[in-house]
């Protein structure tokens, strides 16, 4: 079943857009951002060099998490507007909880492989570009970034499953992570907002974060896992009970 879900996910052009974006964005940012980073070095604000560029790689994980579900619910054609692939999926794999496990596993695997490649490339590229200032390659921190992406992919997966529509998830996450971070603004109101899933996760691999709250990487990881687990539980509760 996992093999079927892998083949399904990797057979989608949109999934490859997610993969390409995820792979390219963070290393590209290193290249573009090098002059900026030099300035930052001169003014003495360097702690997360290389690692801070990893944040943008989450786009790939988000897109993959969304399309893994939204592709099931897009109309198969104009002649049958109500028909979608999920019907075929459920006919082939009618045990819905098993299906979700297989889907989640396939998604996590793809995001993790992509994340490992991107994160290593980004950090190594920073060392090439700024050999004197780049922090050492820390496998644990890279692994934390990969875990962050995987959890974020699953988060997007769960939210899309709840709404059965990818646009909502993508809008919320992209607006929140690029245009204006509502979560970040909330941290100005209450320190508890730092525990929102998208912010807390970054504490897993960044040492300096905007905002006052400092959260230990392990705590951050656990809090984010709890968020993802809760949303996945809600999504699978709905999915196993709703008509297809």
């Amino acid at each position: 079943m996992v093999r079927a879900e892998l083949s399904k996910l990797l057979g989608l052009p949109t999934a490859w857009i997610g993969l390409a974006l995820g792979l390219i964005a963070a290393p590209a940012l290193v290249l573009v951002n090098t002059p900026g980073m030099r300035q930052a070095i001169e003014s003495g604000e360097v702690t997360d060099l290389g690692y801070e560029n990893l944040g943008i790689g989450l786009l790939g994980a988000l897109i993959l998490g969304v399309v893994a579900v939204s592709s099931e619910y897009t109309s198969t054609g104009d002649d049958a507007p109500g028909a979608h692939q999920m019907t075929t999926t459920l006919l082939a794999m009618p045990r819905r909880s098993h299906l979700l496990l297989a889907k989640g596993a396939a998604l996590s695997f793809v995001v993790a492989v992509q994340g490992a490649l991107t994160a290593s490339a980004t950090v190594l590229l920073t060392q090439v570009m700024l050999p004197d200032h780049a922090p050492p390659f820390e496998p644990a921190r890279v692994a934390a970034a990969v875990l962050y992406w995987t959890l974020l992919g699953l988060l997007a997966f769960a939210i899309t499953l709840i709404f059965r529509n990818g646009i909502i998830t993508l809008t919320v996450f992209i607006v929140n992570s690029s245009v204006v971070s509502v979560s970040y603004l909330l941290t100005k109101l209450t320190p508890w907002a730092a525990y929102l899933p998208d912010i807390v996760g970054a504490h897993m691999f960044l040492r300096t974060m905007p905002g006052e709250t400092h959260i230990a990487p392990l705590t951050a990881g656990l809090v984010m896992t709890a968020w993802v687990a809760a949303l996945l539980a809600a999504a699978s509760y709905l999915f196993t009970r709703r008509p297809a």
Binding site: S7, G11, L12, P13, T14, S71, E72, T74, S75, T76, G77, D79, A80, G82, A83, H84, Q85, T87, T88, L91
Partner: peptide, 14 residues
């Protein structure tokens, strides 16, 4: 059932 049951972007073989 209704429709092809396949995602539009997928080939018949895939």
């Amino acid at each position: 059932l209704d429709g092809s049951g396949a995602h539009r972007a997928r080939t018949a073989r895939a």
